[in-house]
Design a protein around this nucleic acid. Sequence first.
RNA 1: GGCGACGUAGCUCAGUUGGUCAGAGCGCUCGACUCAUAAUCGAGAGGUCGACAGUUCAAGUCUGUCCGUCGCUACCA
Length: 509
Amino acid sequence: MSRFYITTPIYYVNDAPHIGHAYTTVLVDAFARWHHLLGEETFMLTGTDEHGLKIARSAEENGVTPLEQADSTSVRFRDAWEQLGIRNDDFIRTTEPRHHAAVQALMQKVYDNGWIYSDTYEGLYCVSCEAYYTEDELNDGNCKVHDKPAEQMREENYFFKLSAFADQLLDYFENTPGVVQPEGYRNEVLGLLRQELRDVSISRSSIDWGIPVPWDDDHVFYVWYDALINYATAVGYGADPERFDEWWPSVHHVIGKDIIRFHCVFWPAMLLAAGITDLPTYYVHGWLLIGGEKMSKSKLNSVSPAQLVDGDEEHGYASFGVDGFRYHFLRDPAFGPDSDFSYESMISRYNTDLANQFGNLLQRVITVTGKKCGETSPAPNPDASLAALAAVAVEETTAAWVRAQPPIALDATWRLIRETNEYLAANEPWKMEPGAAVDAVMGDALEALRIACILAEPAIPNGAQIAWERIGLPGRVADQRIPDDTVWGGYPGGLTLQAGDPLYPRLKG
RNA sequence: GGCGACGUAGCUCAGUUGGUCAGAGCGCUCGACUCAUAAUCGAGAGGUCGACAGUUCAAGUCUGUCCGUCGCUACCA
């Protein structure tokens, strides 16, 4: 059976979960759900990044230990994802023993292979970035990202011979189709690789909140290198080689464009240095912007996911529910470019696509079927005009998900929903007398709905399941298979439909 | 400075290899319908596809220049 391993970045516990984190995580969850529908064995990973100077200092300010600091924020991420219907198979924390063991095992391997050496490093260090910068990478001595002064630091470091891997990496990114999507970001990676690669510092002796370097107790690994290895830890690196070998070749990293360098240059080089030749595939998304600025806690412009899922009367936010939240972030921002977050467009998207088109279609189909088709539901017509349209929807939706383009995929799925509404208007079953003709129309509509439920499940898992049940189908929509179960004619008929409250009540803008 | 992306209807965007490519959705206007969550369906409203100049029988679709956004990256100082 083919496998699909997909990861979010692990989130730094210095920041509470915000919409930007949620965006990435929903994307990954949807990709994982899609691949599950395709019948692949999937493994979805997320987690938290908990080491580094910034956490140590933050803990100190708050009068707690670094671990206590990490504990309290990590659990907020865990809760946030549960609230968004995220079906992650694991949640990794870099402070866990399994991760310490994996980092030490992997880095020891790199060391033993001769790719690490000791040297002195002196330079300007941005604590917030956990990174050294050269003077011209700063604005008047201030970090460009955090707009805070960089500090002069000097320490004995271990260095990784990044420079030795340039050719192998270039070959990989140039010759592997689809390694980085969208394609534009692949060009940026190639651009980074074509520069002269400088060896990078991977340890710190100045702090102790980190994972000890196994061959030198005075050092801990620089938080970035510790963090990247989480992807290997979670599938058993070092602890369970068989499991690692099963999952690792199918690893997919979903990342924001700001962490391309770490993920596409440093990380695969370290994998190669450790003797791991299967390198990741990357899906790179842009930033969600508010008023043209990157969303972040420090900019104080973030709305919490919970405020949008549950609603917040005080601040005037409607209750979108899990599906409304997920759907907006999968449907509206193009995958790749930056995108402005707009509450108004979120409302509009919910009302149009979920309430008016999908929810309302479900409602009217159930009502008319109940009035015109007797006790149980009719079956679809094999030669229905909708059959061909459904086949197109399946094909186009599939192609777009595989290309990592959720907005295009959902557009294709919703076209089927709109076409089903058109089909009803064209046939006016509510005007017909009970009989074969009206049964055929409603059977077709039910079948189109069934297929739409499957295709929409990665975006709106809750509503898809409810709709699935209301049209009388057994089991879980999430466990259907594409394409086998999306072939026209799967709706058996003879089922009992259940009316109910509107699936997605309209929201007031 | 180098490399690259983008600039298509009010909004968000689609538009492989140049010839129904001038489009979709939303919004708007008008009309229809009444099964449905004031939902749905139909029609329309017309944007010189950033500007200019080229190549071509034919260009959003290729070339050059320019303007405007933005990204990655360098050097000098």
